[in-house]
């Protein structure tokens, strides 16, 4: 059976439109990007609960805060990069008051492609993880996006979810067990742990296959919730394997790599390597070219795993 790439954005928009039927309190805001973020699907079905604020992300964030204060469940969307413009509003209106606003950012990371560096958000997890009350999610495929979108409705308080522009091959089957706050062990292994998020989960799975050919059993964990992070699952894995590689479509500062380093350093230090964008902005190019350019491929994870395994042996 041929498997086709699926769009995370379409999964988000479609799920949102489904949710609107049963949840009359859901309102959706967008800042002149509803065709791209796919919130238009909700807007078409529920025009009275959909608001295009124009190109005005800061206003969108505080209007969302107000709507939430008045009892609404608010979803607000734009490209990840433009939502960062409303960071202070997200901090001082949404997060500080612990409001029920779901910030869904599309077009995260370098997979945005040809639009270039100004449009490729690589610092959002860092920004959002820093905020008290904020919960941070990053699905790995369209199916997980749908599951997370549904979960967001039932999580009280502010949430941030980042999805990609690019369509991706599914990681999950049509039906799968899902807990928004639990890191998902996709593959069990005893030699090295590969923690990954978002589009890098697929790369980590491929890296595990490459390692397998050399008799190395890698454990692959999809960390779709960066905050609160499931330290129990991550620590269990690190204790078992004694070596960790993190991979994310994000700066090596402040995202999954940093979060993992924080947990390991405090509880169980083991050799680890962070795969991510190394303190650089993005640039124009095809997504595949950019993943290669910035060292974010299965091969890079494979090499890092070999390196970290050497360090582990040296330590023994």
């Amino acid at each position: 059976m041929q498997v086709e790439p699926e769009s995370m954005r379409v999964a988000y928009g479609t799920t949102l439109a489904e949710l609107g039927a049963n949840h009359k309190d859901i309102v959706v805001l967008d800042a002149d990007l509803s065709c791209s973020t796919q919130t238009q699907r909700f807007g078409d079905k529920f025009p009275n609960r959909f608001f295009n604020v124009g190109i005005a992300e800061q206003n969108m964030a505080d209007v969302s805060a107000g709507l939430s204060i008045a009892g609404k469940i608010v979803f607000m969307s734009s490209f990840a990069v433009f939502l960062s413009r409303a960071y202070e509003q997200i901090r001082n209106a949404i997060a500080i008051q612990n409001l029920n606003v779901k910030i869904v950012a599309t077009h995260g990371g370098i997979s945005v492609g040809p639009d270039g560096g100004s449009h490729q958000m690589l610092e959002d997890f860092n920004l959002m993880r820093g905020l008290p009350n904020m919960k941070v999610f990053v699905p790995a495929d369209a199916r997980e996006t749908a599951a997370l979108t549904k979960a967001l409705v039932n999580i009280n308080g502010p949430c941030y979810m980042r999805v990609s522009r690019m369509s991706v091959l599914p990681i999950y089957s049509k039906k799968f067990k899902f807990d928004p706050f639990k890191a998902d062990v996709l593959k069990r292994g005893k030699d090295v742990s590969l923690f990954a998020s978002g589009l890098m989960v697929k790369e980590a799975m491929e890296a595990a296959d490459m390692l397998k050919k050399e008799g190395i059993n890698a454990e692959v964990i999809n960390v779709h919730c960066l905050k609160p992070i499931d330290s129990k699952t991550l620590l269990n894995s690190a204790r078992k394997t004694g070596a960790v590689v993190t991979s994310e479509e994000h700066s090596i500062y402040g995202g999954l790599g940093s979060a993992t380093a924080e947990i390991l350093a405090e509880h169980y230090p083991v050799p680890m390597i962070r795969i991510g964008v190394k303190d650089k902005f993005g640039q124009s190019g095809k997504p595949e070219e950019l993943f290669k350019f910035y060292g974010l491929t299965a091969k890079d994870i494979y090499k890092a795993a070999k390196k970290v395994l050497k360090r582990k042996e040296g330590k023994k």
Binding site: I55, V81, F82, R85, P114, D115, G116, G117, S118, H119, Q283, S284, G285, K286, E289, L290, F293
Partner: peptide, 28 residues
């Protein structure tokens, strides 16, 4: 235009040598 490594990025990036005075792309 819009190719990897090109000076002609999807949105302008400051490069006075070729007359681009300011990086833009995020409106305002």
């Amino acid at each position: 235009l819009r190719q990897l490594g090109s000076r002609l990025q999807g949105h302008p990036e400051r490069d006075v040598k070729i007359g681009i005075e300011v990086s833009t792309g995020s409106l305002g």
